[in-house]
Amino acid sequence: MGEHKGRTIPAAVAVRRAVAQLRELVGHEPESVIAVRRASHGWEMDIEVVELARTPESSSVLASYHVELDADGGLSGYHRTRRYTREQVDQPAGPVLHHR
């Protein structure tokens, strides 16, 4: 399959390709890559995008996109997983335990 003959492109190359392709498809500037995972088909990653810049910046609207790349770095799928303002903070998944 492609020039890599069964090997997957390096993570840094995959990230650069994913950011460029997502920018072109959604028309907004990716701000950060928040997760990268090697997958059986290539790479999966989550990328934050500024969808609506506002002043103050804390009120800007961001979105998280889940992006999938094939082994050659071609975008095989993406979808928005979350939309939120910059000032929103994720809540912990469960109770926080404190040790003394």
Rank of each mutant, 00 (worst) to 15 (best):
M1S: 15
G2T: 15
G2R: 08
E3S: 14
E3C: 09
H4G: 11
K5M: 13
K5W: 03
G6F: 03
G6T: 06
R7Y: 05
A11R: 13
A12R: 09
A12L: 04
A12V: 02
A14I: 13
A14T: 13
V15Q: 06
R16V: 10
R16P: 07
R17H: 08
R17T: 07
V19C: 14
V19K: 14
V19Y: 10
Q21T: 05
Q21L: 11
L22F: 01
L22D: 01
E24Q: 12
H28P: 11
E29K: 12
E29A: 09
P30W: 10
E31A: 07
E31C: 02
E31T: 06
S32V: 12
V33N: 01
V33R: 00
I34R: 14
I34Q: 14
I34W: 04
A35T: 13
V36E: 04
R37G: 07
S40K: 14
H41Y: 11
H41G: 03
G42M: 06
G42V: 07
G42D: 02
E44R: 11
E44Q: 13
D46M: 12
D46I: 13
I47S: 08
I47P: 08
E48R: 12
V49M: 04
V49I: 10
V50K: 03
V50F: 02
V50C: 08
V50M: 05
E51D: 05
E51Q: 06
L52F: 10
A53H: 08
A53P: 07
A53W: 08
R54Y: 04
R54G: 03
R54K: 13
T55N: 05
P56Y: 07
E57Y: 11
S58V: 10
S58D: 12
S58G: 07
S60L: 06
V61L: 11
A63C: 06
A63R: 05
S64H: 05
H66V: 10
H66W: 07
V67W: 11
V67T: 09
D70P: 15
A71D: 11
G73I: 14
G73D: 01
G74V: 15
G74K: 08
L75E: 12
S76H: 01
G77F: 08
H79E: 07
H79T: 08
H79C: 03
Y84F: 07
T85W: 06
T85K: 15
E87L: 10
Q88P: 12
V89N: 01
D90Q: 06
Q91I: 01
Q91A: 06
P92L: 00
P92V: 00
A93N: 09
A93H: 10
G94E: 06
P95G: 09
P95W: 03
P95V: 01
L97H: 14
L97K: 15
H98I: 13
H99D: 14
H99R: 14
R100H: 15
